[in-house]
Every structure is written in structure tokens, then in C-alpha cells.
Design a protein around this nucleic acid. Sequence first.
DNA 1: GAAC
DNA 2: TTCAACG
DNA 3: GTTCCGCTTGAA
Length: 464
Amino acid sequence: MDWIIKEKTRKDHLEKYIIDIKQYQKKRKIEEENVDNDKQQLKKQHKDESSSEEEEDIEKVSSIPRQVRSWYTIQDTYTQRHGYKVTPRLVIGSRGRTETELIKGESYQTTTTDDNITTEDDDTTDQTNSLSLDDDNDKSVEKLGVYACQRPCNWNPFNKDIVEIFEFLEYARELKGDKINSRSYRIAASIADLLSDGYVQDVELLKVDPEFKVLDMFYNVHGAGSYTAQEWYRRGRRTLKDVLTHEKLSRDQEIGIKYYDDFLKKHVIYIYIYYIIPRTEVEEIANEVSKLLDENFPGSIMTVCGSYRRGKPESGDVDIVMTHKENSVSSKLLVGILDIFKVKGLLVDIITMGSDCKLRDGDDEHLRSDQALCIWRQPGSSTCRRVDFVVSPYENYPVAILAWTGSSHFERSIRLYAKKVMNVKVTSHGLYSRTTQKRLPVKSERDAFEILNLKWLEPSQRNC
DNA sequence: GAAC
DNA sequence: TTCAACG
DNA sequence: GTTCCGCTTGAA
């Protein structure tokens, strides 16, 4: 139960961000009221300017969540202050993982001081180009780094709508085989659409596109990516049955089709989002794992990472990172514990698996972690769950936790930041200096942040 | 598209 | 080598 | 004009 105690020490922090659906809806209601108030205020302000057009505009904009508009303000502020734009950016990742570099964390940060910022800027715009003003501003408004890992980003349900649209467009473009890396133009267009009438034509068209539907279905098979999905479609496959009968499948893909329905419960509009494991169930699984670890490998430590650790109310899978002080134990831990799970009937299938904790050839400094991607079924449950087990050598444990906590975008961001700014390489098995190629010793997760000269971010603040 |  | 996978 | 995470990992 080690991990539960650890969780409790962070409970204060997490509590703030564990928002279940009910609370979300409640907050949402309040938010809508605020928007209404804003609307009335705006109307007052623009009363003298009159004209019915003006009112229509206000009507439309007000249907957008407040944070979206705040975000717009931030972008303007940034542009004025630094002379360059901060643009939302989409990066293609595997399986439609959200890699939307949308600035969604800072909007709430400055929500209360929005007016101050804008007026301040407006007042001083003409003399802004000097550097001294920058310093002044930095005192009143915290300077936001360009990298997502430099700013806290809580899971923020208020940006959900616009984020989902970006994610959807990103996903759709990958599915359709648009390999162009740069998307900001399209995104900007989308924002404009959304802000003007809350409706993005691309999204609406795609929702009814039969080709898209089929591609989406194929893409959701574990082991099939955009290429395979398109390939199957090109060869005339339209259903999973077609694929099963006509296509040669990899092991991954066979498993993917076998458990298709288990992994895909939320098949509604933004189809690929299937975050459906509630926290309580994650805890049940973790308890089971913890119990068996204690019984069979006493002294082992484990942490539940992934979206659970980031405080999300629902997860898509469970990520468990384990270690043991003794390298001799940890090197056999993964194989050993999986065997026990199998015997107990908890482990239904193993999708992929490494051998065991290994040393890199000719370099004993490179201790690697090892992972197994598994399918788990709790006793009495009919639903199979994706559970990833990671065993890390003890000295890499903090780094492994950092790497497996995510979000995926946060990981990319911190690695890019480390590369460009600190000349450090960040991987799931250690931090390395890029100049000397030497491993940097990391005692804790906080340590890693310090080495990288980053402000500490709670896991719940890494939901970018 | 932004930072080199 | 290519594709897909993990955060 | 090049890069956008990882000298990722594994499977085929």
C-alpha cells in the first residue's frame, strides 16, 4: 500500500484537480452565467455604438467559453511584449494522442487580471519597444515560457470544447494522410471559425464523411496506425470483418481486434477519446498489484503514473512503474511479477514485452527500464483493461516516473526544452549531458526539474 | 508556423 | 527499414 | 533550409 500513502501526501494538491463530471457541469453552469454577465456588460459598453450588427457579434462570441477569449488576450499580450506570436500548434503523435500545443494553462492564470494586462499594454504600447518595460511586466505578470514544460497546465474542463476540436482536426488530418507538419494556419482558421459562430465546418463535414468513419474504426485497432488504416481502406476493406478475413494481421493487430470493444467504450463524436477507466478502478487494480508485489517481492516500490497521477478523473489505461533497491531483484521483477499475475488469472494477454532490465552493450552507465504492455481483467469484471507495467532500475526510478507521468505533450516539451536550452538529453532511463554524454545523477523527480532549471510542476500541472 |  | 507503440 | 522527443522501444 506504499503507493496509496504516497498518494495521500499529495492529496491536498490533487483534490483541487480531481473534478468529477458533476462538478464540471456545476462549474460550467456558473461559467455560463459569468459569460451572460459579460455579455450584458459588453452590451452596456457598446450601447452608444448601437447597431444591431454589433449585438449579433456579441451574441456569437459569448457562446464561446470565457477561457477561449482569455487565451486570445494572452496571445495578443505575448505578441506585443515579445514581438512574436504564440500560436497553437499541433504535432502528429501516434494513435491520435493529444499533442496540441494549445496554450490552455495560462488562460485561467490571468483570468482575474485580464483587464489589467490589456489596459496596461494598451496604455504603454507606444513606448513598449524598450526592454525595461519587460522587467516591469514580469513582476506583475508571470512570464510564460514558450515551452509547455515551463508553465503549469492543469486539467481544465473549460477549454475542453476548443481543445477537442483541435484534437479532432489533428486526428482527422493524420487519418486522411495529410503529412504536412505545419498546421498553424489551419488552426488559426479554426479558431476564427469557432470564435465567430462556434462552428467549425471541417469538423461538421468530417463527422458525416463515410471514409473518415471507416478510417477511424481501423485506426482504433491497437497496432494499426494511419498508414495501415489507409492501406486497408485502399484495398476495399470497410469493416473489421473484411480485415479479419482478407488481411494478414500482426500480433498486435490481432489482439487489437480481439479486444476492440473493450478498449473503445466512448464511441460517440470525438471517437478516439476513450478515457473510461474511473479512478476507483485504477485504484483497485493498483491495490491488487501492490499486494502481490509485497507478497512476492518484498521491498519493491511502485507508483501509479500516467493520467491517474496527473489527477484526471478518468484514464485510458493504467501505468504502473515499479522498482527494487537491489538490481538483482529488479532485473527479474517484470518477468516474475507477470508470471504471478498470469497464474492468478489477472493477466489476460501480453501485447508486447521486453526481456528484462538490461545493461546497454559496453556501457554499464546506461541502465534501462523495461516495459510490458498488458491486458488485465479484474476478478468479477467483464471488461479488459490496458495496463502498462514498467520496471526501472532503482537509480532511474525518479526519471522513469517523470517519463511515465506525462502528459505525452509534456514529455515532448520537456525533452525539446532540455535539448535546446540545457543541452541535456531526457529519456525514460536517465538524464544525459549532450556535451560529455555522461549520465546526470537524479535523486528525485524534483531533482530532475532543478537540473533542468525548471520550476517544479506537480503532476496535476502537467496536463498540457 | 516558429525558432534556429 | 518502416510502422506503431509509450508517456 | 532544417527541425519539431527519444543515438525511445519492439515487431515484421
